[in-house]
């Protein structure tokens, strides 16, 4: 519990995390408003939720920064120590440290996803006459929260291996774009539909446009499996390597 509180304090004292929170709240709602005022976008059952899928960039940033800040070398001199040294002196058990980190990231991102969903879906309800959001959409909101949490943990897991945020941020943010690497790879193999980002969208999207249609639970399981494997590799690397 002490370790969790320490991790929450660390997370909330990083400026990068607050910028991510701002992006997570503003971006999906902003895109919703932009789309509603644009005649070319056609409302569908997924209006509001597609926009929330873009907001996952905030979750990715939080997941990356939570780990990379421990290893940050920017402006630092050779021989100087990084925050990870202090962290592991305060919480010597590496598994307990990772568990606390995971809980802090998941809790923060989950809360952010719920608040952002409330804002964006209210905006959708108000701006789009053809779409109404009701209590029946609650499972989909939970799906968004799960998608954001999984994405954050995926990002954190990759960063545990790379220790630098450049690779995970690039790979994962580029993959949010319309012409994502995953999407391009579906042209080569249908297996790409089981990539974490594409499978995970079934958690909250209802109009499937691909040939592989997963139920929300199946989509969540596929993405969860990816997260478990990649975060597991990251955790194993973290526990074995010198800090």
């Amino acid at each position: 519990m002490k370790a969790l509180r320490a991790e929450l304090t660390k997370l909330t004292s990083l400026p990068g995390v607050w910028i991510a929170v701002a992006i997570g709240l503003v971006l999906p709602a902003g895109v919703t408003v932009l789309n509603a005022s644009n005649s070319r976008s056609v409302p569908s059952a997924d209006t509001g939720f597609r926009e929330l899928a873009i907001g996952v960039v905030a979750a990715i940033v939080i997941g990356v920064v939570a780990i990379s800040s421990e290893y940050l070398a920017e402006g630092e001199e050779s021989g100087g120590s990084r925050q990870i040294t202090t962290s592991l002196t305060a919480v010597p058990s590496r598994s307990r440290f990772l568990l606390a980190k995971t809980a802090a990231v998941a809790g923060t991102v989950g809360l952010l996803a719920l608040i952002s969903s409330a804002i964006t879906l209210t905006a959708t309800d108000l701006t789009s006459a053809d779409v109404s959001i009701g209590t029946s959409d609650l499972p989909r909101v939970l799906g968004i929260a799960a998608y954001w949490i999984f994405s954050a943990l995926l990002a954190a897991g990759i960063t545990l291996v790379t220790r630098s945020g450049i690779i995970p941020l690039s790979v994962l943010i580029v993959n949010i774009s319309v012409v994502s690497v995953s999407f391009l790879l579906t042209k080569v193999t249908r297996l790409a539909y089981y990539f974490p980002d594409l499978a995970g969208t079934h958690l909250f999207l209802r109009d499937s446009d691909g040939p592989v249609d997963l139920t929300p639970v199946a989509g969540g399981l596929v993405m969860g499996l990816w997260v478990a494997v990649i975060a597991g590799i990251g955790a194993a690397a973290f526990v074995r390597r010198d800090a």
Binding site: I19, N35, V57, E74, G165, L169
Partner: peptide, 24 residues
């Protein structure tokens, strides 16, 4: 002068915001 904030800004613009604005 810092890598990660600039990287997030550039990637978010070139891959998310830019393509969203393009048709709109």
């Amino acid at each position: 002068r810092r890598t990660l904030p600039a990287l997030v800004g550039l990637l978010a613009y070139y891959f998310i915001v830019g393509p969203l604005l393009q048709p709109r």
